Amino acid sequence: MVKIGNIEIGEFPLLLAPMEDVSDPPFRAVCKENGADLMYTEFISSEGLIRNAAKSLEKLDIYDYERPIGIQIFGDKIESMREAASIAEEAKPEMIDINYGCPVKKVACKGAGAGILLDIPKMQKMTAEIVKQVNLPVTVKTRLGWDDSTIKIVEVAQRLQDVGIAALTIHGRTRKQMYKGEADWTKIAEVKNHPDIHIPIFGNGDIDSPEKAVEYKNRYGVDGIMIGRAAIGYPWIFNEIKHFMKTGQHLTAPTIQDRVNATKKHLNFSVEWKGDKKGIFEMRRHYTNYFRGIPHFKPYRTRLVESISHEEILDILSEIENNFTEVFAS
């Protein structure tokens, strides 16, 4: 059984990655229902939290059915990160996660996210301060390095473990790679298999099928896998991986009813949580993903995206279910 602190998260846990503008409570709801063992919030700006910015405070919303859940924070100032960790702790998550992996320019080039990989002593000091500040387990998500010439991930893991983190997730790319090329899991395995590393090590990057999840589990020996982009519009991937690991067989692919039901649940929660206008607007990015691969879907997508009525969107989704059931059955 894998534990983060005293929190049991399964024999081989599947984690939902924190993704900006994606991993909000409505999205997490459908992923939890479909087998995610541990989830994280979208990353939250430490400066936003300590200044009571509405967008940052909204991201602290967590619900009991999501547990266990971690709140992820990012920033470049140690004192701000300490204070933000305390604010996040008050929201009563199971753990606090530190983002040392975000590669986007506006974060990394200011020394936050993956930018801190250029200053490992500061990374260690910041982590130590956060561990001392809160009474919850502290976890970290990071990348291999800034670029190929700065990969020191084994040293990073040892330093972070030394100051008390409870688990480490490693995305198998450098900051320079962004999301291009293949993730290098051999470097993740070097950390996991190092004799001095005893905390759980989770791998992240390119897991998009049950076969790959099993292959990487067996080949690299990680304690669990974090899944990000592959879960967008396809929350069923968690249960599909679990079933394949257990039986070697594939679960039946989601039907059109499954897709419509998940979309409706996501939409309803989005409207409930954010209000009609914002909830409907922010769902628009998800429709293509939920119905990916369905032939002749574009006219329906256009209608879904253009509609500003919750009821009308639900009617369009019901129409999709009725019109495409035969396509999926054949």
Rank of each mutant, 00 (worst) to 15 (best):
K110D: 05
P121E: 03
S46T: 13
Q158E: 14
F291Q: 01
H243D: 12
R143L: 02
L144C: 00
T263W: 03
I241K: 05
R219A: 13
P254Q: 04
L144I: 01
T150Q: 12
G113T: 09
F269I: 04
F202C: 06
I71Y: 02
E42Y: 10
R285Y: 01
K141S: 10
K265Q: 10
T186E: 15
V22G: 03
W273D: 02
S270G: 13
K212N: 07
R82E: 14
L118Y: 04
D258G: 03
E129M: 05
V305H: 07
A53R: 13
N289H: 12
S80G: 00
V222D: 01
I62G: 02
M178L: 10
N204A: 14
D119W: 05
I308C: 10
R28I: 15
R259D: 05
F297Y: 13
S86C: 14
K92F: 14
H250P: 10
H286Y: 11
G221F: 08
R301F: 03
V30L: 07
D196T: 06
M178K: 15
L14H: 09
A166M: 00
F324I: 00
I73R: 07
A54E: 15
T252Q: 12
I9W: 06
S45L: 01
R159Q: 10
E211C: 00
G70V: 11
Y287P: 06
G224P: 09
D97I: 04
G228S: 06
E311T: 12
R292M: 15
M81I: 11
T325R: 15
A213L: 05
Q177L: 10
V271K: 08
L14D: 06
G203F: 15
Y63W: 05
M178T: 09
N6D: 14
F27M: 15
Y179D: 09
E319A: 01
V260A: 08
E33K: 14
I98E: 05
H296L: 03
A114Y: 07
